[in-house]
């Protein structure tokens, strides 16, 4: 197993080594030690490797990830897994703001809490937060699913498009054009699948409430001026 000690090597050296991997590499399991909160660790990975980061990371860890499975054994700074395309990123601690921002695919799991703007402008990513999320989460969320086992802060799902939000706890307030919706069997099945992928088979689907777009702001209209 390749081991990269960031107390010795630079982030540049690590990322370069990861970018040089071919899709059929046999170096499929990596360990990164002493991340020390450094930024841009493991960004732009394009191969199906498994990476364990043993500690806290700074901004944008695993940004634009494709194919890789990244486990962060600690907390993550701003924009973890931002614009992820596919693969899995698992934060075993808390995540700062804008977790999973603009993500297009893949699964982001956060064992702890996530700060403000979690899932902002998400475009197909699935995000599962075992704790709570901060304000303005899923702002302008376009596609994908945001699952929260704890509570959600103010203005959840403001100006949301076609993404879906599931919350088990309390929602402080909903943003413009975001409403609670009845869950269909298809929604329940999707939620159960996401919970299962995060190892939460015991969680009960019916404990969650579902939110999405009222689609009333999809066309600019003067009668909605108070919402803009």
């Amino acid at each position: 197993m390749p081991v990269c000690d960031l107390a010795v090597s630079s982030v540049r050296e690590l990322n370069q080594a990861l970018h040089r991997l071919s899709p059929d590499t046999n170096e499929t399991a990596w360990e990164i030690d002493n991340p020390q909160g450094k930024h841009a660790i493991g960004v732009g990975i394009n191969v199906p490797v498994e990476i364990d980061i043993k500690g806290h990371v700074g901004y944008y860890c695993a940004g634009m990830n494709k194919h890789a499975s990244v486990r962060i054994h600690g907390n993550a700074g701003t924009g973890v897994a931002e614009n992820m395309m596919s693969g899995t990123v698992h934060v075993m601690g808390d995540a700062s703001q804008s977790a999973g921002a603009t993500g297009c695919g893949g699964l982001l799991i956060i064992d702890g809490d996530a700060s403000a703007r979690c899932g902002i402008s998400m475009k197909g990513i699935d995000i599962l937060v075992k704790g709570s999320i901060g304000s303005m989460s899923a702002f302008m969320a376009q596609a994908g699913n945001l699952v929260v086992l704890g509570n959600a802060g103010e203005a959840l799902g403001d100006s949301i498009y076609e993404a879906t939000i599931f919350v088990r706890g309390q929602v402080k307030s909903l943003g413009a054009d975001c409403i609670e919706k009845p869950m269909t069997d298809e929604d329940r099945e999707r939620l159960a699948g996401l919970l299962g992928r995060a190892g939460l088979d015991d969680a009960k689907v019916d404990d969650f409430r579902m939110y999405g777009s009222a689609r009333e702001l999809y066309h600019f209209h003067v009668d909605n001026a108070a919402s803009y």
């Binding site: 841009a40 732009g44 901004y59 944008y60 940004g63 701003t78 924009g79 804008s98």
Partner: peptide
């Protein structure tokens, strides 16, 4: 969506440079 202010921008630029080597 994932940065505010020039200090964050510096880190964002670093990320884009890292992604594109």
């Amino acid at each position: 969506p994932d940065w505010t202010g020039p200090d964050d921008l510096e880190i964002k630029i670093e990320e884009l440079r890292e992604i594109t080597d």
